[in-house]
Design a protein around this nucleic acid. Sequence first.
DNA 1: GCAAAAGTGTTTCCACTACACCCATGG
DNA 2: CCATGGGTGTAGTGGAAACACTTTTGC
Lengths: 233, 233
Amino acid sequence: MSTPCHPNRTQRLPHLSVDNIVFGIIDGKLNVLIAEYNEGDAKGKKGLLGGWIGIEEDIDDAAKRLVSAITGEQDFHMEQLRAFGAPDRFHLDRVITIAYYTLVRPENYSFHAGFTADDVRWYPADGLPTLIYDHNQLVDAALEQLKRKIRFEPIGFNLLPEKFTLRQLLEVYEAILGIKLDKPNFRRKILKMNLLVDCKEKQKGVTHRAANYYRFDPVVYEKLCEHGFNFEF
Amino acid sequence: MSTPCHPNRTQRLPHLSVDNIVFGIIDGKLNVLIAEYNEGDAKGKKGLLGGWIGIEEDIDDAAKRLVSAITGEQDFHMEQLRAFGAPDRFHLDRVITIAYYTLVRPENYSFHAGFTADDVRWYPADGLPTLIYDHNQLVDAALEQLKRKIRFEPIGFNLLPEKFTLRQLLEVYEAILGIKLDKPNFRRKILKMNLLVDCKEKQKGVTHRAANYYRFDPVVYEKLCEHGFNFEF
DNA sequence: GCAAAAGTGTTTCCACTACACCCATGG
DNA sequence: CCATGGGTGTAGTGGAAACACTTTTGC
């Protein structure tokens, strides 16, 4: 619940916190960013990136701040999940938390020791340790939401580098949905949407036929959204 | 922001409120329950059912309490939408609100004058008056969520009486989605899901062929959920 | 019989599936 | 040449869209 860069106690809203479930793909597997707290009442324990809300701070900004402090980036896909407010979710005080989830590209940066007040590292989404408070429950809810959302919006692209192969994209879907997909059919379906732009560039140094690189086209996406479309696989 | 049955000021959580967007179908059209406040700083103005959260109260319970106070019922479909927390959304103080939406069956009850501290009445969802604070924005977000959700879960049934005709169900979908549907195709699709149980009972006193009554089967629904299914029309 | 809405049948089309097959590259 | 993964072809299936048609009821 404590965090780097948090407003000091007198400047924060009481009884309220934000927690951010940060997802990233590592070696084709879905991972979650977990902190080991170095201060506060949860010192030595593991949990989500979390913090307080400044007295004049937008709640979305508070949630973003947590991620920026770790990655140094400002630009990532983040959405509010919902508020969690069971009276007994935090034993020392009544605290309602507003949970967010974020999709990042882990290959863009590495975490330096001492970069923040807490140690952060990736854990596979299907092999998380026991977290403080109700944080395991928050992760479960975020995973569920991610699975639902990926079926109707192309949020999967936010987990990949700008240029990616169709196999990488397929693996994102497989990792999140937890199912095997048929490669040829996936390929045809995603290409027919015209959401991908051919980079005219191929993999190098691979020991098999080089795959083509594609990138996501946000303009086409806007148009498609008008009519509504379907990402189910 | 003030409400009937709210905990008094010393017992509530500061800087936090709940607001509930209550939907009901009236004459085949989607309506929203709007209060005209009789007390507090918003006296005389219109807005959503809202209130405070007791210091030991679950946030879901706080949101339910608002609806029960009006309808007298305990059993209705309610879900959290999300938290709204722009610093300037309420001019007098910093208040973050947790928004819920609820589906009710208006034919089950009528509102008595004096039943609550506020006057409440239905307004068509597409013809709402200007509401206080960001409440119009909350309604828009709830409508959007409702449209999304109805495509994958049979929540539409919560707006209908226990026994209903297929036309009534069709009209719920049309009212929420804002589109015209083909009756024969709708009929086949919904019946093939086996979600409806034939009541072996027909309309009476209508000036045309009497429609059959059906009811929703929650047991079949549970089974269908396992595999995931699709309510898109 | 007529109007109105319930309910059925039928055709067309397109999208998803499953799986066989060919292509490019490094070793 | 082989192994590996990239990428294409194709037959079969099922569901959705469109719309013509038949049935039941009150007046």
